[in-house]
Each structure stands twice: as C-alpha cells, then as structure tokens.
C-alpha cells in the first residue's frame, strides 16, 4: 500500500510561514491499495487538495474512514470534490453512537447554517457504515477498527495488505490515569490494534512539559507515544496530530525528545509532514516525499 499524508495538524488548521515545513492542514491520509482502492483516513482540511487530485484522476470509489467527528477530522468533507460528482461511490465509515446514526451526526455539519449544502442534496452515492470492529475486506486490504481513549466515541484503524500493517491513532490518550511504561499491555487502550504494526501514526500533540496541563483532553505527549509504541512492538512511529500552537522548530524539538526516549532505534521515529509518503510492501517500509501536488 502507498500512503500519502495530506494533513497532519491537530485541532485546527494552522497555515503560515512558521508551519510550512510540516504543514497546516488537519488530519487526512490517502492509502492506495494494490487493488487500486483509495482508503482516506479522516476528513480534515487536507482532504480538499486530495479531492482535487482524485477528481482529476477520475476516481469513482473511495472509502472514508473517520476516527471521530471532531471538526478537525471532518471539515474537509464538504470540500471534497468527488463528493459532488454524480456516480462516485463514497463509503463513509465512522464510530457508532448510542443516540444518533453516523449520517445524522455528519448532517449536523453538512447543513445550514454551518454549511450551505445539505447532506441529502449531495449528488454522489454516499453510504454510511458503522466502524468495522471486526475485520472487513476493502479491495485488497483488510480493515479493522477499535474504540480508543479520546473525548467522545473515537476509533483507531488498522489496515493490512500483503503482510504489511498500518495503524492510525491520531487522537488517543492511552496514558489517562496510568503510568504507561509499566501498565499491563492487555489493559492499554489501542494496544491490541497497534500490536506489531509496521507503521504507527500516533497522536503526539504535546511536549512532555505541556501534558500536565492537558490531562484528560484526549491527546498524548512524546513520552506516551514512545512508551505506547515500545509496548506494542511497532516497527516505525510517525508523530502525528501536531498542536496548532507548535511551529516547525517546536516540532523538531519534540522529535529530538522522542528519539532520545527510544534509544534502541531512534531512526524509526519521525515527524509526519504534508507530502510524506509511506510505502509498505513485502520489501518493508519506505518513507519518501510526494514530488508534486495537484
């Protein structure tokens, strides 16, 4: 599978010269399977340029896997061009709620006064699915979700294809109420999903010194990401969901902290950036950068 990062900022888009190296768009990844299917992880503002590329390419089926419905993970949906092209099949997956269907909750955003077009008036063929808590096949991949610790119903996703595995936990606070390093793995949120993954993209919103002021907000600091990744025995960690108040220099400082904590293989910790590519196949994992954007 080929993964493209189209947005890795958390909470709020943060464009500007101070975030130009890592990007200001909020969470959105495009995972292209060997079968040609597109799995889009979250619908943050990075979904707008991705939609332009997919529309130009004539893609007629996409699966949008939403981790939760906070606006930084949903706002790009209304600006996703394939959504407005008749005949395109758009499958939207997201966390179930005991009180409202997924479509009813998304319609709160896709309706006036928050948005000019009603969900019911979208011309593409949109189908909603509750999160796949048991593995489902989409194209050449199997996809599985698990509920994880954040604020409100939230899931993470694991995508497997050809023996390679990608895990996406952009909003996750597994350390809430526990000391993660010595906490039992079986009692750790997200552990079973992330276990032995080749690549883990994980919430790294805060520096270790910032976390005490944000306990319970649903996000992790560098210490927690590294301890979680080590516990789950993942191959590579990509720090994701960058705080909108962190500029590029701040992020690189966090990377130094993370690498200092994962002393056994510091080169396997990276910062997510817009334009990053990740290829996972039988040959292993390769990180790169997109040559050009649509």
């Amino acid at each position: 599978m080929d993964v493209g990062v189209w947005g890795c900022r958390g909470s709020l888009a943060a464009p500007g010269p101070e975030t130009i190296r890592y990007g200001g768009n909020t969470s959105c990844l495009d995972v292209v399977l060997s079968s040609g299917h597109h799995l889009i992880l979250d619908a943050g503002t990075g979904m707008r340029p991705l939609g332009v590329m997919l529309d130009n390419a004539g893609v007629d089926e996409v699966h949008v896997l939403l981790t939760h419905l906070h606006l930084d993970h949903l706002q790009g949906l209304g600006f996703f061009r394939p959504l407005f092209r008749p005949g395109v099949a758009v499958h939207v997956w997201g966390p179930a709620s005991p009180v409202q269907s997924l479509s009813d909750r998304i319609a709160i955003y896709l309706s006036p006064p928050l948005f000019p077009v009603r969900l019911a008036d979208i011309p593409s063929d949109v189908t909603f699915h509750d999160e796949p808590l048991e593995a489902v096949a989409i194209g050449s991949a199997t996809v599985r979700a698990a509920k994880v610790t954040h604020q409100g119903p939230t899931v993470g996703y694991r995508i497997e294809e050809g023996g390679a595995s990608l895990v996406y936990l952009p909003d996750h606070e597994p350390s809430l109420g526990v000391t993660l390093a010595n906490h039992p793995a079986d009692w750790t949120s997200g552990y079973e999903l992330a276990c032995d993954a080749d690549v883990l993209l994980h919430d790294a919103q805060y520096g270790d010194d910032e976390y005490p002021r944000h306990v319970g907000w649903g996000h992790s600091c560098v210490e927690h990401v590294v301890d979680f990744a080590a516990k789950a025995n993942v191959g590579n960690v990509v720090l994701f969901h960058h705080d909108p108040y962190h500029d590029d220099d701040d992020l690189e400082h966090l990377l130094v902290q993370a690498r200092a904590r994962w002393t056994s293989a510091p080169e396997r910790v990276r910062l997510a950036c817009e334009g990053m590519t990740i290829t996972l196949d039988a040959n292993g994992v390769a990180f790169g950068a997109q040559a050009a954007r649509a």
Partner: peptide, 18 residues
C-alpha cells in the same frame, strides 16, 4: 481471560483504580 480488554472495561478499571 487474559486477552486484550475492550475500552469500556479499560475505562472502568481506571475509574475503579482511582
């Protein structure tokens, strides 16, 4: 027994532990 626990159980344990 002995396997990964679901999120509601994990959260219930953390409540109990405190």
């Amino acid at each position: 027994a002995g396997g990964p626990k679901s999120l509601p159980l994990i959260l219930a344990r953390e409540l109990a532990a405190n």
